[in-house]
Every structure is written in C-alpha cells, then in structure tokens.
C-alpha cells in the first residue's frame, strides 16, 4: 500500500503539490492523468526519492519512506533505512536511461547481483527469463545503442522487473517513442499487468491502455486531484468540465 499524507512539494517559490493525500492499495493499477505541469511526474519522483519531500509523509506498506514522525516531530530517516524501503519500488523513465557501458544482459543483472546480492548464475537466468517476457531474449548480448527506442524501453522495463519490485512507476514510458514502436511496449506492460500483482502507478497519454490496465484513474490539475473514478466512468462520463476538455484535447 502506498499512502501520501499531506504531501507538499515546492521548487524554490513555486508550490507544485500542496497538501496531497491519496492511497493506492496493494496490487492496484492507478493511472495519473492531467495537463502538462500538473505534478504527475513529481509524484512519481517523490516516491522514487529522486526529489526531496518538502513537507508531509509518504508511507509504503505503513513504513515511512523518507520522513517519519518521531516524538511528534517530522524527521528525515537515515539513508540506509530509506534505501531499504526504496528497494521495493522500481521505475521506468521516459528516456529509457540504459547504461551505455553495459550490454543488455549486464544492464539487467547489475543491480540484482550487486544490490540484492543474488548469485550471478541465478541473476542471469532470471534476466533471460524476463527478457523472454519482453520478447528480447535473443538480444541479450547486444549493446543498448544497437536497439530501437522501443526495444531499449523494453529492456528498461526488464531491468526494473529484475529487482522484483512490489511497486512499479511508469512515467510516460512511450512518449519518447516513434508511434509505430509504442504498441510493442504497451503490449509488454499489459502482459505484466495481467500476469503479476505488482502495484502500478502509471502516467500516460495512451487512454486505451489506461482503460485496459487500470483500476482507477486520478485526474490532476495544478497539483490537486480534481476527480477520481474507474476508467470507464472517467473516460465516458467525467464529472468536471475541465476533465472533459482535457480528455477531448488528447484523444
């Protein structure tokens, strides 16, 4: 379970999130939509501890992530403790961010071996199995630069999966791809949604995909949840005029 409690995020003087509260149940797939700049990426980056939390708390399965309440005071947790909680979360980025100094297979096994301490052989087999899932087993020894954008993104997904996260964060993972490569990546994600019970937080403009995989859609506007609903309801009968216009604009 993920729980955002009174989360405030400021960059200098600009307040991006102002007292955000929401909860995601274990195994739930939640899609975040909303206009550009509404704070969707910031939410995922806060969960991944890539941004500092200005105020408030984030809990993962009741465990505080970066800050906790101790004797009525909000204090930062020790880096080592943060790291332990963070390991339950994986993220796939818009720009893939594969390590260019490693082969596809090495990209995937690096963290399982050196962070989780998995035996090499086991990590390798696991990586190959996951590569099979994303349809790239035969490219295991290729160099990232030799792959198309869609293939690179599937490797990045495999890399995140190889850490066996309980929570997977997907930030516009198809936005940097040529249109004809989007389908394969989404297909892989659909498959993961179908065959695992990983909790997923998804930011996407692919509404059909969101409809297919998510249990719930949150519409953001200026750092607040404007409305939330099941996908069918959100996409066919949104409550707010603002949501209707947003959906019209992107469809």
């Amino acid at each position: 379970m993920i729980h955002f409690q009174d989360v405030v995020k400021r960059f200098g003087d600009t307040t991006v999130l102002d007292g955000l509260d929401f909860t995601v149940a274990p195994g739930e797939r939640v899609t975040l939509i909303g206009p550009s700049g509404s704070g969707k990426t910031t939410i995922l980056r806060l969960l991944m501890t890539l941004e500092d939390l200005t105020e408030g708390f984030i809990y993962v399965d009741g465990e505080p992530l970066t800050h906790e309440l101790r004797d009525g005071k909000r204090v930062a947790r020790r880096p080592r403790d943060v790291s332990k909680t963070r390991r339950r979360i994986g993220m796939v980025f818009q720009q893939f961010n594969l390590f260019p100094n490693m082969s596809v297979l090495e990209n995937i096994t690096e963290a399982p071996i050196h962070v989780l301490g998995k035996p090499k052989q086991e990590a390798r087999e696991d990586a190959l199995r996951i590569l099979e899932q994303v349809g790239l087993r035969e490219r295991a020894n290729a160099h990232p630069m030799q792959l198309s954008g869609g293939q690179q993104q599937r490797v990045a997904i495999a890399r995140a999966l190889a850490m066996h996260p309980e929570i997977l964060l997907l930030d516009e993972v198809t936005s940097a791809l040529d249109p004809e490569l989007v389908g394969d990546v989404l297909e892989v994600l659909r498959e993961i949604a179908r065959t695992t019970n990983i909790t997923m937080l998804i930011v996407t403009h692919e509404m059909q995909f969101a409809r297919d995989v998510s249990n719930r859609v949150l519409m953001f506007d200026s750092g607040r949840i404007l409305e939330e609903a099941e996908p069918d309801k959100m996409f066919s009968h949104p409550e707010h005029e603002r949501t209707r216009r947003f959906l019209q604009a992107i469809l």
Binding site: M48, L50, F93, Q95, F99, E110, V115, M163
Partner: peptide, 26 residues
C-alpha cells in the same frame, strides 16, 4: 546525463557501486 544518476537511485545502488560501474566508465 542526469537520467543515468537517477536510474542508479531507482535501482538502489550504493555510492561506490554507482560510481564504479555506471558513472565513472561514462
């Protein structure tokens, strides 16, 4: 690139690990 640093965080790599294996080679 910033994305490389962020990915090492997303994969929970230690400072030494990310330096030695990811950042330094680049």
């Amino acid at each position: 690139p910033q994305g490389q640093w962020e990915t090492t965080t997303a994969l929970s790599m230690s400072w030494l690990h990310k330096m030695r294996r990811v950042i330094w080679p680049q």
